[in-house]
Simulated assay, not measured.
Amino acid sequence: MSDVVNPKAAELPRLSNAYQNWYRFSRNPTAVIGAVIVVLAILAAIFAPYITPYPQHAGAVVNFRFRHLPPSGTFWFGTDDVGRDIFTRVIFGLRVSLTLALVVLGTAVPFGTIMGLIAGYFDGWTETIIMRLTDVALAIPPLVMALAVAAVLSPDLTHSMLAIAALWWTWHTRLVYSMTRQIRSQEFIEAAETLGASKFHILFREILPNCISAIAVKTSLDCGFVILVGASLSFLGLGIQPPTPDLGTMVAAGSAFLPEHWWESMMPGFAILVLALGFNLLGDGLRDLYDVQEVK
């Protein structure tokens, strides 16, 4: 009699593991709070034109009759110096911050991961060149490099993303390099090499899956830092330019009217705080879930 494998039965262990992971994650209150903040921010950014009361205020709109109005039922976060609704501009500003984090990490993480895999698996000059280049890049503060690049190029979203991504890959290279050095001496790697598996197979089918959890945790934590660096560039006038709503630019513009009109600077600043906090809490929850140890 032939053995017949029930597909549904084969999926039970996988579903069980997924359920266990979700149960463990849901038992962490701070992780759940972080996940809720991140999800709400993403949904708000996607549906900004439909959930904001004055979507036209995301552009070059001037209404001096309503300038410097404090928070109220009509304008939840108050209005700025030209009468635009700050709540609307904060929601649209989330789009810029999340796009910045997505593009920067979407570029830096894959590149840094590949460099770390290559440097960790291969010895000799390949490892030396990659890791010495990484060490040099790590010695440069990311914000200083971003300021230099953004100052040379014209300030806009594209150049801000380029400036931040220029050095961000190094952290992931260092992380994946350390993990690859530990994993490559394991028995299953030696078995794959004995069976004649290609280098590509070993790197991306054997080693990389064992690094995914640490990469996910690092990426989640990095989202908050990228948003803060992007807001810092905008605050200094080297990021997104008006009238495009950007949280850092709004904080800088509102600081000229402190303390009388505190809401113009505090509300977008509070949005930056909550968004960065959400990603940090989510990253801490993922680290506890996967029991990831910090690798230096």
Rank of each mutant, 00 (worst) to 15 (best):
I42H: 13
I42F: 13
L43R: 04
A45R: 00
I46H: 01
I46C: 04
A48K: 02
P49N: 04
Y50T: 12
Y50A: 14
Y50Q: 15
I51C: 10
I51F: 10
T52G: 10
T52S: 15
Y54D: 12
Y54F: 14
P55W: 01
Q56K: 15
A58G: 15
G59A: 13
F64G: 10
F66S: 15
F66I: 12
H68Y: 15
H68D: 14
P70Q: 13
P71H: 12
S72E: 09
G73C: 05
G73A: 09
T74A: 15
F77I: 05
F77Q: 05
F77T: 06
G78K: 02
D80Y: 05
D80I: 01
V82P: 03
G83H: 03
R84F: 07
D85S: 07
I86G: 13
V90P: 04
V90W: 04
I91P: 06
F92N: 03
F92I: 06
G93P: 06
L94M: 07
L94V: 00
R95P: 01
R95I: 01
R95F: 02
T99H: 12
T99G: 14
L100T: 14
A101L: 04
A101P: 00
A101I: 05
A101F: 03
L102P: 03
V103H: 06
V103M: 02
V104D: 01
L105V: 00
G106W: 02
T107M: 13
T107K: 05
T107P: 08
V109Y: 04
P110D: 13
G112A: 12
T113V: 10
I114N: 06
G116N: 01
G116T: 04
L117N: 00
A119F: 06
A119I: 05
G120N: 01
G120R: 00
Y121H: 02
Y121V: 01
F122P: 02
D123L: 10
D123Y: 11
D123Q: 13
G124H: 03
G124L: 04
G124C: 03
W125Y: 13
T126E: 08
E127S: 12
T128G: 10
I129C: 05
I129F: 14
I130C: 07
I130Y: 07
M131V: 02
M131D: 02
M131K: 02
R132L: 03
R132P: 02
L133Q: 10
T134C: 10
T134G: 14
V136G: 09
A139T: 11
A139G: 13
A139R: 07
I140L: 14
I140H: 09
P141Q: 06
P142Q: 12
L143D: 08
V144D: 12
M145E: 02
A146K: 01
A146H: 03
L147D: 03
L147E: 01
L147Q: 05
A148Q: 06
V149K: 04
V149S: 03
A150Y: 00
A150F: 00
V152D: 11
L153K: 05
P155H: 09
D156C: 14
L157H: 15
H159C: 08
H159W: 13
S160T: 12
